[in-house]
């Protein structure tokens, strides 16, 4: 008895119920503890600057020193350039670009350099960086502070893109992203930072490129990620009331996305709805819809449906902002009408 017990792998310590923000913070801290080459840079990230505007990196510089956790000038090209250069010589920088819209002023560094150096050098160099960035509507911040721009980066060969929807995945995806040998854009949803989730193991890793079935169902597959995934879960009651059983897939990694899991589910239910906060046109939903329509041609009971934001900038006025991103109600309506 005692023999079998001792030969078993000791259970990893459990991380108690934490918020998204705490999970991300802990993942970076654990990665820094495990590997001295993990370094953090970005505007206000060190403790004298309060560990970031929202406090995601709070405590890290106090624990690991300001050499490894470095507040930067407000200079996004310089931030990503510094991350790239350090990554070329063995470091694993986690760079914060405060808001996703601010990636626009670092696009050259991200798209022309981080994403391409491995290929253009014939594999001699590579760029193991994580770019953390937050976004999401809900704070009345208007047109330049809360866009979802994931499709741009997913469209860039050489980049990986992840977007967790809960604290356990936030932790596990961050650990995987830091371990990954290539540049990973890590999207944090602002309104979700204080959301609590299930507890998880302290060494929890969520491999990149693997979706999760967040809820099983038989009538329709709903694929989503980031905060919209939680809206989909919030739509379950209304769908069930209408007699619709939805299978909800949390994509978790946007690029490379998990075709196997998505297509297997859509083949099973025969219906597919993709929902995201980014504008619908030219979005991630189009890519998934195209692949599903091609590979499941003849096997689907209804055309693939997409649900995203209208083709417009994010508005300021509250009723307009509230109507911008797909919510539980609209997701339920779309799924129910797909099953009619």
């Amino acid at each position: 008895m005692s023999d079998t017990l001792t030969s078993e792998k000791p259970a990893a310590a459990k991380v108690a119920q934490v918020t998204m923000l705490q999970a991300i913070n802990q993942a970076i801290a654990d990665a820094m503890e495990a590997d001295e080459h993990v370094v953090v840079l970005g505007e206000d990230v060190a403790d004298p600057e309060e560990g970031g505007v929202v406090g995601v990196t709070k405590g890290l510089s106090g624990r690991f020193g300001e050499k490894r956790v470095r507040s930067t000038p407000i200079a996004e090209q310089a931030i990503i350039g510094a991350a790239i250069g350090a990554s070329l010589v063995g470091y694993k920088p986690v760079a914060e670009i405060m808001l996703m819209n601010f990636t626009t002023v670092a696009m050259d560094m991200i798209v022309n350099h981080a994403a391409k150096l491995r290929f253009m050098s014939g594999g001699q160099t590579h760029v193991p960086i994580v770019i953390r960035t937050m976004t999401g509507t809900g704070f009345s911040s208007g047109g330049q502070h809360c866009d979802y721009l994931e499709a741009w980066f997913a469209h860039t060969a050489g980049m990986k893109v992840v977007a967790p929807s809960n604290p356990a995945d936030a932790y596990g995806l961050m650990r995987a992203a830091i371990n990954d040998p290539d540049p990973v854009l890590y999207i944090e949803n602002m309104p979700s930072y204080w959301m609590k989730g299930d507890s998880f193991d302290a060494d929890h890793i969520v491999p990149l490129g693997k979706a999760a079935v967040a809820k099983e169902g038989g009538d329709v597959t709903i694929v989503s990620y980031s905060r919209t995934l939680n809206e989909a879960l919030g739509a379950v009651k209304a769908m069930e009331a209408a007699g619709v059983s939805a299978e909800i897939i949390d994509l978790r990694t946007i690029s490379p996305w998990d075709e196997d899991t998505v297509l297997a589910s859509a083949a099973k239910t025969g219906r597919l709805l993709i929902a995201h906060e980014a504008v619908e046109k030219h979005g991630m939903g189009a890519e998934i819809a195209a692949v599903a329509s091609t590979k499941l041609f003849g096997k689907l009971k209804a055309p693939v449906a997409r649900l995203g934001a209208p083709y417009a900038p994010v508005p300021f006025s509250k009723p307009l902002e509230d109507a911008f991103a797909p919510n539980a109600k609209r997701i339920a309506e779309a799924a129910i009408s797909l099953c009619k």
Binding site: A78, G81, A82, A83, G85, D108, M109, N112, H113
Partner: peptide, 20 residues
């Protein structure tokens, strides 16, 4: 370490190498 075809882009990356 890097040769770039983008005007101005050698400098931010050189900073990163120097930071390393």
């Amino acid at each position: 370490m890097v040769t770039t075809g983008i005007v101005g882009s050698s400098m931010p990356i050189a900073n990163g190498l120097a930071w390393g």
